[in-house]
Design a protein around this nucleic acid. Sequence first.
DNA 1: TTGAAAGCGCTAACAA
DNA 2: TTGTTAGCGCTTTCAA
Lengths: 330, 330
Amino acid sequence: MKRTQGVTIKDIARKAGVSTATVSRVINGDTKVSEKTRELVDSCLRETGYRVNPIARSLRSKRTHTIGILAPEFQNDFFMAVAEGIEEVLRTKGYTTFIVNSHEDPVEEEARVQLLIEKQVDGAIIIPAAHTGPYFTTLRDRGIPYVLVDRLIEGMDEDAVLTDNRKGAFSAVEACILAGARKVAFIGGDPALTPAKERFEGYCEAMSTYGLELDDRLIHQGDMHIRSGYDATRAILEQDPSIRFLFIINLFMRIGAEQYLAEHPEHGDLQIAAFDFSPISSLFDHAFATVRQPLEQIGTTAANLLLKRIEHADLPFPQVCRLTGELVMH
Amino acid sequence: MKRTQGVTIKDIARKAGVSTATVSRVINGDTKVSEKTRELVDSCLRETGYRVNPIARSLRSKRTHTIGILAPEFQNDFFMAVAEGIEEVLRTKGYTTFIVNSHEDPVEEEARVQLLIEKQVDGAIIIPAAHTGPYFTTLRDRGIPYVLVDRLIEGMDEDAVLTDNRKGAFSAVEACILAGARKVAFIGGDPALTPAKERFEGYCEAMSTYGLELDDRLIHQGDMHIRSGYDATRAILEQDPSIRFLFIINLFMRIGAEQYLAEHPEHGDLQIAAFDFSPISSLFDHAFATVRQPLEQIGTTAANLLLKRIEHADLPFPQVCRLTGELVMH
DNA sequence: TTGAAAGCGCTAACAA
DNA sequence: TTGTTAGCGCTTTCAA
């Protein structure tokens, strides 16, 4: 079973009685072709069902019309929602996207960056696995533009698109306070990571704006996974069973919190505000408010920004776009 | 900012004082090279940090070492879990995977198949968007092997890997019966789609095995999405409020059911058995049992099967692998 | 064991 | 407006 290249521009050239250069021009919409020749070639193209060979084209032109998306995880609706937004924009602009997985691991991430370089992508959109990533600059060194999403890289000024985390956190915590909270416990994450850091800042800001004190015993740090949400919730409630409001910075830790609460019905009146809207948000027994990030919009914004970089549009550098999330009350 | 190809085999050849053919042989592990030459060339390769240009290689060799995954949706942990399994296997075998999205739409799916052909993938793994897909044969016509996942295509005998849906459904319904159910209501999907059809069969089989009658009024068909689970649950409970057990064939409809039940606390003792395990499965108020599909294993199995086809291993055709799920009790 | 040479299918100077 | 031509970087006969 061997792969056969179908019709080539050579075949078309012969059939139409023109040179391959002319065929190439027609295919690429070059204007310097007479109407007559264009029509002739076009009809041959159609008749034969010609399809360009992008590999040959890329070898010659040094452009692949391919964009790499580097994500830390596939089994994550949030990243995939961003990916869908990206893909939608790029596809309509004639680019193919191709998603690779860093498994939240900087070592793998570096290998994937190499892969993108090898595959000669025209650009990349990266959701960093960590707060550093010195190897990203190898992309720039090769002239491959890229845009960061969700997380910023320490000490590097890069194009980036992310949720306005401070504002989102502020509004969620504010909602708790307006609902009567005097104390709001907090479950956050590693402050080296942009979203965790900024959401904590938003929390602090809301508390201080309303004249409430921060209490270190009610501020816990998890690792964004389910188990740590469970553990932190227990720690908080054992510390102070009178807590009525809890702000959690992502969905997975919130699930952990709900698991703990399901086992401890004595905290039935605890209300949870959290980041990350999902179809199940309203089902949680303790759902109070949820910050819905504009994920698809983050994707489309990142894609459009990248396209501008690829086309060398005259934009100041770097561009950091913060998109506002929506607070959903339950 | 222009893309620069770094070191080429020409450079290496010059540096090592050999021909490009020899360099190519060394790179590709050809045995017909003297130990001495190999070492010489190898050291030049290392010193210069040479990297092959896969585009040039593909143009010549007609192989891309790229596998396409065609999925109906990105924001779906189940498909993505399969994709991770696939990717893991293929990566270690030196293949790059590239995922494209059909958006559950046969028209888009056909376009994506064309894309895979254009990209000259060496093979494809397809989660079909529907129960037909005449265009898949164009892959075979081109000599591109493929493996179906999750859904079979009507009237076509193809390599495929999927959960043993009948057995999974049987065990879930059986668990309900053993827990005392005399009636088990059913929420399924379009029987043209393999999983819906087979899960219904498993349901029927369990009922008849235990001498229970099927009651058409308790058998509803949804579209696999949340809303239809909500609607079907209401219909069933309005029909027969005494129902104590409900079997639902996927997670999303189950979420819909839970939403309905959250609004109708009078059905507090209803127990739900369902397909699709998730971290939130245990959180549902009505969780009774869940069938956990071996998703990663489906991915790895599909990838290995595909690799065998690519290497023209002598396998009977077609291969249909059914992997057994696990019943999780809550 | 090694090298010379011919392309893979396409694009892009440069000429005409 | 069109054609000629020279590759892109690599693999792979074929000969030596």
